[in-house]
Simulated scan of single mutants.
Amino acid sequence: MTFQTTDLCDANEGLLAEGRLRVLEPHFRHFGGRQRFSGPISTLKLFEDNSFVRKQLEQPGYGRVLVVDGGGSLRCALLGDQLAEMAVRNAWGGVLVYGCVRDTAAIGTLDLGVMALAPHPQKSLKRNVGEIDVTIAFGGVRLHPGEWLYADEDGVLVSETPLT
C-alpha cells in the first residue's frame, strides 16, 4: 500500500471540513506486522468478551478492517495470536481494537495490520455477547459499517468513501 494518512488529509481538506473524513484521536499503537493498512469497515461492539471477534474473523474478510469497540477496557485482551492468524488466513486487511491485545510478539510477525490501546496478558471472557455491524463511537469519531479506514504510522482516518 502506498498511501500516507498525511497525504490523504492534505489532499482531502474539503472532506475533513465537511466531516466526511475524520481523524481518530491518537490513542492507538501498532502491534501487527503491517504498519499501513486500509479497507472497508466491519464493526463490533462488545465488552471484555471476544466471542464475536472470533465469529467475525472466521468469515471471509475480503480485505475489510474489523473495528472492535471494546469500550476502551484495559482489563483483558480482545485479540491474540490465534485470532490474528485466523484473520490472515481469511483475508482480513486489519483489526483496530478500542481495547487490548495479547501475544504481541507473535502478532508482530504476521502480515496483518493490528492497532490497539495496549497489550494485556489476560484473555477475555466468553459469554457470546456483542453487536455486529452497528455504528460505534470512540477516539472522537463515529464509525459506520462500510466506511473506509486508513491507518499508518501517523494515525487513523475514517472516510465515508474510498480515497485515492
Rank of each mutant, 00 (worst) to 15 (best):
R64G: 11
A77D: 03
N50F: 08
R36A: 00
N50M: 12
E58Q: 14
D69V: 03
P40C: 00
P26Q: 04
F31R: 01
L57W: 06
S38H: 14
K45M: 08
R54S: 11
Y62R: 11
V68S: 10
H27R: 01
L46H: 12
R54V: 11
P40Q: 12
F28D: 00
F47K: 05
R34G: 01
A77N: 06
R75W: 09
L66M: 14
Q35R: 12
L74I: 09
G70T: 10
E58R: 14
S38A: 12
P40V: 11
L46I: 06
R34A: 07
C76L: 05
P26E: 10
L57R: 01
V53E: 08
I41L: 15
E58C: 15
H27T: 07
R29P: 15
P60T: 09
Q56F: 06
L74F: 04
R34T: 15
S51C: 13
R64F: 14
E25D: 05
G33D: 06
G70M: 08
S73H: 06
V53M: 09
P26S: 14
C76P: 04
F31I: 02
R75S: 11
H27C: 12
S51M: 03
G70Q: 04
V68M: 06
L66F: 06
Q56V: 13
L78A: 04
F52T: 11
F52R: 13
L57D: 04
N50L: 04
S42C: 08
G33H: 10
A77G: 08
V65E: 02
V68D: 11
F52Q: 12
F28M: 04
F37L: 14
V67L: 04
R29V: 06
R36Q: 09
L46P: 00
G33I: 08
S42W: 01
R34V: 02
F31E: 05
G39H: 05
L78T: 01
E48A: 05
L78R: 05
V65M: 11
F28K: 00
V68Q: 02
R75A: 15
H27D: 08
Y62S: 15
C76V: 09
R64W: 08
